[in-house]
């Protein structure tokens, strides 16, 4: 399989604090990878660099030609009074005046993420798992072939976690979407991801998820 992302000697410093230095890794097309590591090791910083929201101090990275990135950030400002329906929320990532194709695309993503039946529920009243699937559906509107999820399961109960992970596996298997899944939940990653990237003490290790336990515990 060909590489879809190649990272070379990537380093990041804030003032005098080094977050990580000389990271080298690559992601294969169609793979699923857990980005593991304790809190505060720079996982979100690394993602922000890959999303071009932050510039690295040194080093470079390159996505393969034709990559369309989807990104589901860790935190959202959706409180209990948030007014928009799930459908309207997902549709924020589309023109305000929607043509039939756009409406159809939104419908497809709502069905794909199992939200179509409850599309008129307000986001503020949706459960944690439903919200996460709505964030995912919103990102899927761009038809990404690589998707990055930042701690998408962190605040979910076990049932909702499994539902979301099954959905992600489905997207990977059926639509061949490459997945980079940021988490500190090793058990969950072992259940659903093929590969791992382990970010610790400023450097990174790469391998197959099945071997993770032996290597680091």
């Amino acid at each position: 399989m060909s590489d879809i992302l190649e990272v070379k000697n990537l380093s990041m410093r804030f003032d005098k604090k080094t977050v990580f230095s000389d990271l080298n890794f690559n992601l294969k097309k169609g793979s699923t990878t857990a980005l593991l590591g304790p809190n505060g090791t720079g996982k979100t910083t690394l993602i922000s660099i890959l999303m071009k929201m932050l510039a690295p101090t040194t080093g470079s990275f390159k996505f393969a030609d034709g990559v369309r990135l989807g990104y589901v950030p860790q935190f959202r400002n959706i409180d209990a009074e948030y007014p928009l329906s799930i459908e309207a929320f997902v549709g924020l990532n589309a023109p305000t005046f929607k043509k039939r194709e756009v409406k159809e695309a939104i419908k497809n993503q709502l069905q794909e993420t199992n939200l179509y039946e409850i599309r008129h529920t307000r986001m503020g009243e949706a459960s944690g798992g439903q919200k996460q699937r709505a964030y995912l559906a919103q990102a899927l509107l761009d038809h990404p072939n690589v998707i990055i999820l930042d701690e998408a399961t962190a605040s979910l109960d076990p049932m909702a976690k499994d539902e979301l992970m099954k959905l992600i596996r489905h997207l990977n298997e059926k639509h061949n979407i490459t997945v980079l899944f940021v988490t500190h939940d090793v058990a969950l990653a072992q259940k659903y991801m093929q590969n791992y990237l382990y970010l610790i003490n400023g450097h990174i290790e790469q391998g197959e998820m099945a071997q993770f336990k032996e290597a680091y515990e």
Partner: peptide
């Protein structure tokens, strides 16, 4: 379009 996205989902808008 940008105003809708940014006002109702600032983080999502930044991510896009």
């Amino acid at each position: 379009r940008s105003l809708n996205f940014d006002s109702f989902d600032h983080i999502g808008a930044v991510a896009h």
